[in-house]
Nucleic acid binder design. Structure first.
Lengths: 200, 200, 200, 200
DNA sequence: CATGAATGAGACTTCATTCAT
DNA sequence: CATGAATGAAGTCTCATTCAT
């Protein structure tokens, strides 16, 4: 057995720390999220506890990202699965991502701050560009999306989406306003990527 | 005279430090750009030297932002002045901003990282959203831009632009590729904000 | 429980640091009692250790003052309790304060230096003037002390006492000489504050 | 010529710096009176100027003390010369010293702070105890002062006087109140040092 | 498993002083 | 004579990490 299995206690301690870390990052930002602050927020008396359960700051961060992705993934998945066609899926992604702000503002703010600081190496985060690029490429081949540089457009659109979401998460509006914002952004992106407005 | 005039030596030392700071921020990021690193990069023997010339980290940062804005402004201005009409100006802004990467990659990367960390308070930086929003609003009234939420779209587009520029600055391609990238992004943005593609 | 309970180790470490701090202040004065000096004196390897156990210089100082007051209080208390009448109590205070020098010269010197620098905010220290003033006022009403400006006299006498004590503490004489010095000063103060020498 | 004579410019520069230093010490205290602060207060652009005119901090301090003594001496001298007899002179010293607060509060505060920090080695300052002791001894021989330990009493009374003066200087009251305070303190000291109140 | 204590590096800042111009 | 630039030590404090218990 190369990797020791985790006991229940260890698992729950890790979860407790991860939750605290996410909230601290959301509150004070990644740069100021020290072990001290996280330990205090988690009700732990020393930072040693964190070092004991995580190999280092990177490890804790990765765990945070994984947890956030789990949460956001299970929220967005139904939206994506219910969408048919490339355009509809793009729209579903944007709208559900914005809607996410209403459900998990801390998670959203934390993740975006982590991504901004380039401190995430999880497959989910680093894989997002590839997923978008592939989606655009497939849509272009299907004649749904107009021809464009998928890489550049992916960067522009995902970062723009992140920024809007981060802004919204800083002071979460009500569900109706979030829905409107999601549609607004989805419209923008669909227009930007299709030839003559939404048709497929 | 409220503020003591600066001597030539002081001015040039400050410039030297600012240049070093910009390069360090571009290299290791804002969070890790300590006085130590900057002093070393500038060939100074102590961090006290920086404190001697700048009131503090904020002061140095402000000087960096001012210098970057001076550089980028004088680069982009001709493009903007040569552009007629709302759409052409949007296009000029995007294209010249991307082209800037070829001339001042460090400045571009540094500024974006500073903006990302919300550490800039200069009128130029904090005023950009307002300028964009006003531009969009005026263009909408002129019937050039379609109706949309100018605030949300401003955030999405400026952040997207920043991200593309930052990516390009990390490993600057040749001028031709940059020009292509600029046109690509400008196309994207014009399509996103106008009703039927570029007409004005 | 608002404050985490202290472990035995922490308590003893804090005590060790406080003791070292008091000795250092007594030796080199408050102004030059840096964390470095204190750490060295306490046999600690780094100043970080002090910051670890105390919130800051103020916190350490407060702990020093508290410790000194504990020590001096338990020394002087029997004297004060054994004294009957306003004059006898004044005499007891002066004599026991001078006698204290023989027992805890470092504590005495440190406290006086801290008080001089106005760096103490403990109730014991800042409350001393009020206690003296009240004592004088009560004695005046009882017809024991002559009429005088209690505030001004309090300042003069307590400061004078401090100075004599500090001088003595700088090079502590034997018990006999200290006793004589205490009586000398007590005489001076009793004469100064009563109408016709000691009568009550 | 072993010591270069001072030119007019140098003399006036020194005076300017000394004046500034005294005011700064009076304002922020000896401990925080750095060359920086003094230079700024004096309208100088750099601390180098101070180091140029003074051999070091001790030298500047000595100059400050000398200047303060000059000022206070010329204020108090008439009072002392107008007083006949040991008791009257003690009274004159105390009263004029308190009155001084109304004329030169900054000088008074600065000097006391310097003395407190034991940072003065001028003949005037370090000589004061000797003068007092001699005065008391002579008065004792003349049968005016009662027998007491002149050294201890000198310390107590001069320090007490300093403290009252310092307190008054911190927020200078009007001349009438100062006169009253001076008389109050003189009464206290005369009673303390004579046998049966003021008679000689 | 968990804890608190300890570490040592590094952060920014202020200081008195020196020196070339 | 005067200046501003430079220095390097020292200041307090925070950090992530390690370790004995």
């Amino acid at each position: 057995m190369l990797v020791r299995a985790r006991t229940f206690t260890e698992t729950s301690r890790r979860a407790q720390i991860v939750t605290a870390a996410i909230e601290v990052i959301a509150e004070v930002g990644y740069a100021k999220a020290s072990f001290s602050r996280i330990a205090t927020h988690a009700g732990l008396s020393s930072t040693g506890m964190i070092s004991y359960h995580f190999a280092g700051k990177d490890d804790l961060l990765a765990a945070c990202v994984a947890e956030i992705e789990r949460v956001t993934g299970s929220f967005m998945e139904p939206y994506l699965e219910g969408a048919d066609g490339h355009v509809a899926q793009l729209r579903a992604y944007v709208e559900s991502n914005v809607a996410l702000v209403g459900e998990h503002p801390a998670a959203v703010r934390a993740l975006i701050d982590i991504v901004r600081n380039g401190a995430a190496t999880s497959p989910g985060v680093s894989g997002r560009p590839a997923v978008f690029e592939e989606h655009f490429r497939a849509g272009q081949e299907a004649g749904v999306f107009r021809p464009f540089d998928v890489r550049a457009v992916t960067i522009a659109l995902t970062s723009g989406l992140d920024a809007v979401v981060a802004t919204a998460a800083a002071d979460p509006p009500g569900p109706a306003e979030l829905a409107r914002l999601g549609r607004e952004l989805a419209d923008l992106y669909v227009r930007a990527t299709t030839s003559e407005g939404e048709s497929a």
